[in-house]
């Protein structure tokens, strides 16, 4: 049967090559950590349902993008129809942090006339010994751009749920307050089905880790 959800949000996940975008998404949508995965070429699609409040479910459609520069002509087409984004860097790779600014510029120049709610993600936080970016400076950068900051690990399943759910809640609030509006011809936010049975939350897994694709 059709899964019941209030809204559908489209998210985009961006960041340098090998910061762990695909691994983070797989942990979130499939609940497992892939030790090895082919480099993403172009864009891959994932999906999951999250419950932000009891009985309030949001369907997330997530675009996983290739980090390599040559694929920009493909990936940039996906900004326009995204309402939210996770911008990843690898805390053990300073360069990927330095590129955060470039990624925001890239996104902003291709999202017009819409805008994207971004969350800054310091990934691979299980590798504390190899850390090259401190939490303070990452928080400072995030603050300067008005973003939240969260440190995650797909390997150890740290804050993965939190990253996606926090972002989803933020977008939900903006939709509720009218700051983000549903528009025809824009895929960023879509309204879902709200039948009377919406109060029953039994279909949603307890850990919220099941993939509903």
């Amino acid at each position: 049967m059709e899964t019941i959800w209030l809204y559908q949000f489209r998210l985009i996940v961006i960041g340098d090559s090998t910061v762990g975008k695909s691994c983070l998404i797989r942990r979130f949508t499939e609940g497992r950590f892939a030790q090895v995965s082919d480099p993403t070429v172009g864009v891959d699609f994932f999906s999951r349902l999250v419950e932000i409040e009891p009985g309030k479910r949001i369907k997330l459609q997530i675009w996983d993008t290739a980090g390599q520069e040559r694929f920009r002509s493909i990936t940039r087409a996906y900004y326009r129809n995204s309402v939210g984004g996770l911008l990843l860097f690898d805390i053990t790779n300073r360069r990927s942090f330095q590129n955060v600014h470039n990624w925001l510029e890239e996104a902003q120049s291709h999202v017009q006339p819409h805008s994207i709610v971004f969350l800054l993600v310091g990934h691979k936080c299980d590798l504390e010994a190899q850390r090259q970016v401190t939490q303070q400076e990452a928080e400072k950068l995030a603050g300067a751009y008005g973003m939240r900051y969260v440190e995650t690990s797909a390997r150890d399943a740290i804050n993965v749920e939190k990253a996606f759910v926090d972002l989803t809640r933020d977008i939900f609030e903006l939709v509720r307050s009218g700051d983000i509006k549903i528009q025809d011809g824009w895929e960023g936010v879509k309204s879902g089905f709200v039948p009377n049975t919406v109060h029953s939350s039994e279909e949603v897994t307890k850990g919220g880790r099941q993939c509903f694709c």
């Binding site: 090559s17 090998t18 030790q35 090895v36 995965s37 082919d38 480099p39």
Partner: peptide, 9 residues
Amino acid sequence: IDIPRTNPL
């Protein structure tokens, strides 16, 4: 960084 990810299995 891509070579170890080529035919990883």
